[in-house]
Nucleic acid binder design. Structure first.
Lengths: 149, 149
DNA sequence: TTAGTTGCAAACGATTTGCTACTAT
DNA sequence: ATAGTAGCAAATCGTTTGCAACTAA
């Protein structure tokens, strides 16, 4: 009968945003939206492709790439690269955050620091610039895992 | 036996570092070192290739890529991507710095902030991690150039 | 109805690599 | 002498695109 209320709501919100901008809500896009909303690990295109194929094995990798591009433009997806060669995606949220990459496990942890944001604005300002965007990634190892070299 | 003293010294220092690690100092590598040491604009592989060809037109792009990889491993070159699709290189310096990218002109400005460095370490620490490395890029527009949209 | 979207396969741009001929040590 | 390196061209990898067949609006 009713699925998870939150999931239903969220999906509708994204579909809404697509329709508003004249972007059609296709079968494939609905699948991709559901894959994205279930992911918390910043998947790359191939991971999205694999997960989408579970739902509909006829979907193509081209649709993943095309849809990610459309969604990026709609502002409902953010793309990162985290140093690797492939792009990685996450559903955009209203709150800005940066990433800490656990270099042992590959895990990505999101964090937020108003202090850093303010400092960045201040630095740009002092250099005579107005900050438009930024990218901050911390590469780190867990303290508990730490071993003597 | 002394050319420009500073250039000679620096080149020697890099050559030294290569020899120490069993990396041969070839004609092409010497050229690439000189191109690098003259660049202050974070050139990509193709730019390095063009500049190297002025000195010796027989050099190949493969040597640029191979040498950059070797130099990266030797720690005498840093590679960035600054959001574009191609890697961009700079001679490594002892002092750490981050980059502000002027999105109007494409210029890259280097800056240094102990405050930001400290804050990053603190954030990692609070998340239970020890900071290994980081990447910070500010994308900004000049205040003076600023126009009403 | 028709403009937007799909899957496919070919094209792409940046980078890497196998090979055979050199060259620094 | 010989291990490392060069240039060349072909290969690879992630991503994009032209096209003809569909499909949401």
């Amino acid at each position: 009968m009713h699925n998870s209320v939150t999931t239903a709501k969220r999906t509708t919100a994204l579909e809404q945003k697509c329709l508003e901008r004249g972007v059609r809500m296709t079968h494939q896009r609905r699948i991709i939206i559901s894959v994205l909303s279930e992911a918390s690990d910043h998947p790359d295109a191939e991971m999205l492709f694999e997960r989408a194929k579970i739902i509909d094995p006829t979907i193509s990798i081209a649709s993943i790439y095309r849809t990610m591009k459309v969604f990026e433009e709609l502002g409902i997806v953010d793309r990162h690269d985290f140093g690797g060669s492939k792009g990685r995606y996450e559903e955009a949220t209203d709150d800005h955050h940066d990433h800490l990459i656990d270099v042992k496990s590959g895990d990505v942890i999101e964090f937020q620091s108003d202090e850093i944001e303010a400092l960045q604005r201040k630095i740009a300002d002092e250099l005579g610039y107005r900050l438009i965007d930024h990218r901050l990634e911390l590469y780190a190892v867990p303290k508990t895992t730490e071993q003597p070299d």
